[in-house]
């Protein structure tokens, strides 16, 4: 499978999470906090960041759908918990939001949960690889 590692469902889950994190940060950039904003967020669509975020969302969705062909929803969704590690880190780096000690601990717990799931997912890896060989 090194030949087509990019098509591996777990790689696609990770790609989906990365794009989703990017879209969250971009949407946040496009929607600065205001008290009188519409609850449906249409106003944000005038911002270029929002459109870039929409593109990232579509890419994330396509990667996610591909992964769902092979990975059980429960497992895939647990793996997508990596979002809660990547998003706060991105907010810290790109949006200048602060992270206190307790929050770092929470992020570490989430990461542990993702790794525990990934380990169990690795066990069904062989089955997945066989399926991909049969249905590219």
């Amino acid at each position: 499978m090194t030949r087509r590692w990019f098509l591996h469902p777990h790689a696609q889950v990770f790609l989906s999470v990365l794009l989703s994190a990017a879209s969250q940060v971009l949407f946040k950039k496009s929607a600065p906090m205001s008290a009188d904003a519409s609850p449906f967020g249409f106003a944000a669509m005038s911002s270029g960041w929002a459109w870039l975020a929409a593109l990232a969302t579509i890419g994330s969705l396509l990667a996610w759908l591909y992964a769902l062909r092979f990975v059980p929803l429960g497992v895939a969704y647990n793996l997508s918990g990596a979002l809660h590690v990547i998003v706060p880190l991105s907010c810290w780096i790109f949006l200048g939001e602060k992270i206190v000690a307790q929050r770092w601990l929470g992020i570490a717990l989430v990461l542990a949960g993702v790794l525990v799931t990934a380990q169990s997912a690795a066990k069904i890896e062989e089955t997945i690889e066989k399926e991909i060989e049969e249905k590219p």
Binding site: G81, H84, V100, A101, V110, G113, S120
Partner: peptide, 24 residues
């Protein structure tokens, strides 16, 4: 879908982490 103990442990850890993040 089959629920394995590891999967449930994963959910518990992630949710525990999110609770900590909320409380911070």
């Amino acid at each position: 879908e089959k629920m394995t103990p590891r999967l449930l442990l994963g959910v518990a850890l992630i949710c525990g982490g999110l609770i900590l993040v909320t409380a911070s």
